[in-house]
Design a protein around this nucleic acid. Structure first.
Lengths: 331, 331
DNA sequence: CTGAAAGCGCTTACAG
DNA sequence: CTGAAAGCGCTTACAG
């Protein structure tokens, strides 16, 4: 790898001047700047990350803490982050937060503390109080994306409004027996996403003077949705519509309905949340939340905090109802 | 952040000795080693990546070059890589290879050359000749995973054998009118995955003395599979079985069959390749290829090349036929 | 076994 | 506008 010193020699200046010319800081005459740039290009010079990191204290890398299980969603988000960062010449260091306690401890106690990143983006991850403290001890900007952590500056969708919008959609189609599949965290202060979606559901039913046709708790997987829907549909007075708190739950609900011989949407309307890549395939009405844009927003927030010339995004992220064939008026 | 100097002061030794004690290199008395380790722990010391990188020339980070579009597959692979690397205290730097020409050039000409990584894993990516040259110029170990590049040491599944196994499965059920959905790269030297799967298909039909019931070229998406299957099924003598070169193609084929009023597997058997996370949901018979294990293998290969005490994996990766309800004897 | 010193490749006040 | 020098925080021959 070429060093700055070689570039300087070729351009017949000191390394100091070469550095200034390349970074565009401090006064350098146009002529020398051009000479240095030419030399750098000819030699294919790129400054060593370690050396300039050590000298400046800046790494030009952003850490992204992800639970790699959330496949489709996080791939989208990551793509959005990567694209936004690449524009400004930042790299991504990926930290995989698993459930394995030992691996996780090493992550928070060691990996993150090597000083490899200028800021950390935390993706939709439940982080313990101790882990939050460890993150804060890094003394670097932290950006949450959909994390249920009041301590973190978090970009989020208004999930209570999402719950309202989904429920409103079913009500406006004429449904009066509406059930919900999701999760509730008791005593939550208004940061847990499933809880907020459930509250929106209740809000809207209450406003419409309609009683809930049931709530089934489920793991946020297709299988979880399947089980929950089956339970709801086997009740004496089954719902005519289900609001599932995620698309995967909704996929499971669709399959459960089919397995019971029910037609969707003839016998049962189903709405999900996410805009999962397969929602089109399932003809699922859903609430799209633009994960790629979310990633770009998180990246922009991180960059803005680092003083880069980037507009900080709004803290509230957009969503949009996408009507498809899985919802219709009740029979 | 605590520095080595502070640790040394606390342990009442020189920074040199502190470094040796912590890294376990060179002679250090047990007593001092213990004192230093104690001090490091008390102070929460972790060596600065930039400083030790600059001093040793090693970053303890592995670059992973991914096409972030391949969602489910690459998430699995990445998880496998991350887990294997975390064991040895290596980090991941993620490089997103998009189709955007400018972004891509910046990636190969600048980002990768900052010297941030000790080795690069290239995931199932078609890389141009010039890009290969740029990778090689990095003078770092390169590990391909399923890349169609003869120039790269690449871990791969024997995809011709995969094609044979899939076809054999259909033949052994009694099918004689078997079609293939996939892609063929003319003149390929035996590295392009779809081409190899197609060759395996031909191999096995030839061995059985059976004529192909058709080949449909398709983009490797659900929609591509849908179109291709529709074309095949509208022929005067439609196939009774389809071997799709990927699970997503197979999902599309299943949907196309259903849309034409055909029963799977009653009227049409379908087999895919991948072990996609949704293959169970579709009851799809497929050839599982264990992407998480592939990631772990790629990581191990990289670490072994870097001299870490890790067994280098076999160059040929395993696969396994998973029979499900989408294949059955012809009616 | 331990320490002083040099060096990794940059950057940036400080002089001039 | 330009250069010499110091420093970023480690590591590692080299002496002792």
């Amino acid at each position: 790898m070429t060093t700055l010193e070689e570039v300087a020699r070729h351009a017949e200046v000191s390394p100091a001047t070469a550095s200034r010319a390349l970074r565009g800081r401090g006064r350098v005459s146009d002529a020398t700047r051009a000479r240095v740039q030419r030399a750098a290009e000819d030699l294919g010079y790129v400054a060593s990350a370690a050396a300039s990191g050590l000298a400046t204290g800046r790494t030009r890398s952003i850490g992204v803490l992800v639970p790699l299980v959330d496949k489709w969603f996080f791939a989208q988000v990551l793509d959005g982050i990567a694209t936004r960062l690449a524009d400004l010449g930042y790299d991504i260091t990926l930290y995989n937060a698993t459930d394995d306690a030992a691996q996780r401890r090493r992550l928070f106690e060691t990996a993150l503390r090597r000083g490899r990143v200028d800021a950390v983006i935390i993706l939709s991850l439940a982080v313990s109080a101790e882990e939050i403290a460890q993150l804060q001890a890094l003394d670097r900007p932290l950006i949450g994306l959909g994390t249920p952590c009041p301590e973190l500056a978090t970009l989020r969708v208004d999930d209570r409004a999402v719950g309202r919008a989904a429920t409103q959609h079913l009500l406006s189609l004429g449904h009066r027996r509406i059930a919900h599949i999701g999760r509730v965290r008791p005593g939550d202060s208004g940061v847990d996403i499933p809880t907020l979606r459930h509250r929106g559901f209740i809000d809207e039913l209450t406003a419409a003077g309609v009683t809930s046709a049931g709530f089934a708790r489920a793991d946020f997987t297709i299988d979880g949705g399947h089980r929950a829907a089956r339970d709801l549909l086997r009740q004496p007075q089954p719902p005519t519509a289900i609001f599932a708190a995620s698309d995967e739950l909704a996929f499971g609900a669709i399959l459960a309905a089919r397995a019971l011989g029910l037609d969707v949407p003839g016998d049962l309307s189903i709405i999900g949340v996410d805009g999962h890549e397969l929602s089109g395939l399932f003809e699922l009405t859903t609430i799209e939340q633009f994960p790629r844009a979310q990633g770009a927003a998180a990246a922009a927030a991180a960059l803005a905090t680092l003083g880069e010339d980037v507009a900080a995004p709004a803290a509230s992220l957009p969503f949009e109802l996408v009507p498809r064939a899985s919802t219709a008026p009740p029979a």
